[in-house]
Design a protein around this nucleic acid. Structure first.
Length: 245
RNA sequence: UUUGAUUGCUCGG
């Protein structure tokens, strides 16, 4: 069943949900019940294809069949709501899940925290963050990267830097995405000196820059008409074993 | 085995 689900997930990630659904249907015809993980996989696939309605129908059907959805089931649903600009609805939905018997995890909170940041609702984002931690759910590198990226894109670099220090103090290790967010926020404001300093700092911390890191920096140099430096960055990324894409 | 964070351009809203 694990093997089959690996295949189903692969189809879903390639956007071939209908084939995934067919596989599960065939399995049901052979009187094998799909388990929660497999249904969650399908629901994610449907959401990725924008078929939210079908995902919701599937959730209803699984409940009728005595299979209770869990937090993972609703992750993709929250995500779709957020990505379609309905953060308030997602927050509502999160509240309903809290009241229900579904044990939320850091992923569900982080999805909404990220969306609040993207909407510029930083106080709400921080409040939800605190609320989550008060419930004993510890923020992780995703949660912090969302907050840091959000603050920095809004020009609030001091707040972003403070959050970076916080996470390091708490032994939540920043990763390449955390730094890429920071770097790109500086690049977008033409603050290439700061961006380059962060590039050096990530290397000092043992984090390898990736293609996205270099793309951001190259973009920054290009937009400032510093094409020689942009070219040098391309050479540098190749030297460092990073493929231009 | 299933859910969340970072980069370009164009067009549309």
């Amino acid at each position: 069943i694990v093997t089959l689900n690996t295949l189903i997930n692969g189809l879903c990630l390639e956007g071939r949900v209908s084939e995934a659904v067919e596989l599960v249907d065939r399995m049901v015809e052979m009187r094998h019940k799909p388990d929660l993980i497999m249904l969650n996989t399908l629901i994610n696939g449907l959401c990725l294809k924008g078929k939210v309605y079908e995902a919701m129908v599937l959730i209803d059907r699984m409940m009728e069949n005595g299979c209770q959805p869990d937090a993972v089931t609703y992750g993709p649903v929250l995500c779709i709501m957020c990505k379609s600009g309905k953060t308030a609805l997602a927050l509502d939905f999160l509240r309903k899940m809290e009241k229900g018997k579904i044990k939320l995890g850091v992923v569900q909170y982080s999805i909404v925290i990220d969306s609040l940041c993207k909407d510029g609702r930083f106080d709400d984002a921080l409040n939800l963050f605190k609320e989550m931690e008060m419930k004993g759910i510890k923020a992780d590198v995703f949660t912090y990267s969302s907050l840091i990226g959000g603050f920095c894109n809004d020009g609030r670099w001091n707040d972003g830097a403070q959050l970076l220090r916080d996470m390091i103090t708490r032994k939540i290790t920043p990763n390449v995405v955390t730094f890429n967010s920071l770097i790109d926020s500086f690049v977008k404001e033409g603050k290439l000196l700061e961006a380059k300093q962060l590039y050096d700092e990530m290397i000092q911390r043992g984090i390898s820059p990736d293609t996205i890191t270099y793309n951001s920096l190259i973009d920054g140099f290009c937009k400032e008409n510093r094409l020689d430096e942009a070219n040098k960055m391309i050479d540098l990324m190749v030297i460092k074993g990073c493929n231009p894409d």
